[in-house]
């Protein structure tokens, strides 16, 4: 399968999980990674700078109209929903919170499923609410690949558990096995 994008949703415990996964992707990783991490209304700047210092890929905040490119890791800006357009650019929205969240994982995943259909990998990591479960189900319905962090290895198992209740994912992995699997899946 020729995967064109990876979307990741996570909240509480997400930063710690991403610190392990993202550096493990290596600098030749061939597909863009797009992430919703619930961090409240605070600016992303600090952890984006930090992620850049530990990742060989370029880590940035997704910008409105920006073309989505391989070799990049994008984070949704705080207090905006992040959507993927059919022409593979980002758009932002200030509409109501969804699942008490803005950015909402479901909204990103839904738009990603429409844009990439079966060429998409969706991932749910540690988190304290059920945002993303519906979106992951949709990714699977569109023929995409789904992966959920094993709740037993998650700082907060609520989000992976909620996802597992709605979707039987192709992979259910321990944190330290996720990066290796992604490299394997995207190398054709």
């Amino acid at each position: 399968m020729n995967y064109k994008a990876i979307v990741i949703g996570t909240s509480f415990g997400g930063l710690e999980a991403l610190k392990i996964i993202l550096p493990g992707l290596g600098k030749e990783f061939p597909v863009p990674v797009i992430i919703v991490l619930h961090i409240g209304d605070h600016s992303n700047d600090t952890f984006i700078n930090y992620m850049n210092s530990i990742c060989p890929l370029k880590v940035t905040e997704a910008e409105n109209n920006e073309e989505i490119k391989p070799g990049h890791i994008y984070f949704a800006p705080p207090n905006y929903h992040l959507l993927i357009e059919p022409d593979f650019t980002f758009s932002l929205s200030t509409e109501e919170k969804y699942n008490y969240s803005r950015p909402s994982i479901d909204i990103l995943f839904e738009s990603a499923a429409w844009a990439y259909s079966k060429n998409l990998i969706g991932i749910i990591l540690s988190g304290a609410n059920s945002d993303g479960a519906y979106g992951l189900k949709l990714i699977k319905e569109f023929g995409g690949m789904t992966l959920v962090q094993n709740p037993c290895s998650a700082t907060s198992p609520t989000m992976p558990r909620a996802a597992l209740k709605m979707v039987l994912p192709e992979y259910r992995l321990k944190l330290e096995d996720i990066a290796v699997k992604l490299v394997e899946l995207t190398n054709g």
């Binding site: 959507l83 357009e85 758009s91 929205s93 909204i107 839904e110 738009s111 429409w114 844009a115």
Partner: peptide
Amino acid sequence: YSKAHIRR
């Protein structure tokens, strides 16, 4: 208008 937004 942005397509993903309107579709939603």
